[in-house]
Amino acid sequence: MTEGCRCADTQEHSGADLALIEPVLERYAGDPGSLIPVLQETQRVYGYLPKDALREIAAARKIPLAKVYGVATFYSQFHLRPRGEKVIRICHGTACHVRGAPEVTRVIVEELGAKVGETTEDRAFTIESVACVGCCGLAPVMIVGEQTHGQLDNVKARTIVATLREEAELARGEIPPSAEEEEPA
């Protein structure tokens, strides 16, 4: 809802390997209500929704691309652009808001040099704002990958970002590029 119209973008090719989603399309073929699960699984495969994949889904399900695009842009869970290796999700639930989430966000944005909703230039991090992760008792909260950090303040947020940066640099320096190409599940 927040992303602007980018219909024209879908004419380009993203170079995604479409064979990867064939099993998904097959499994849901003939189930008219399953467009959302199909998109969810497609995103699980690629990490985002590549343009080619959207076109493939439309063709396979015999529905207009506009409909697929409409659904994909309606729900905040779907992403049309690749995201960073690690997604930093800062909770902006009410409890987090009154306990300092805006300050924490400001610090993280400042430290990483990318705005909320953006990915850092090195594709290491994406900063996202989420409505509520339901850990209000420990507000303010942010989730990095699978890990949740609670009771944050500016100092704690800066320390966490610094650690994450170090980890990212270490990972880049030590793992040869070939080992990074994991087979998507």
Partner: peptide, 12 residues
Amino acid sequence: DEGDPGAFMDRS
């Protein structure tokens, strides 16, 4: 579909 920010009853 508990969407209210600041609510986690249904989840719990």
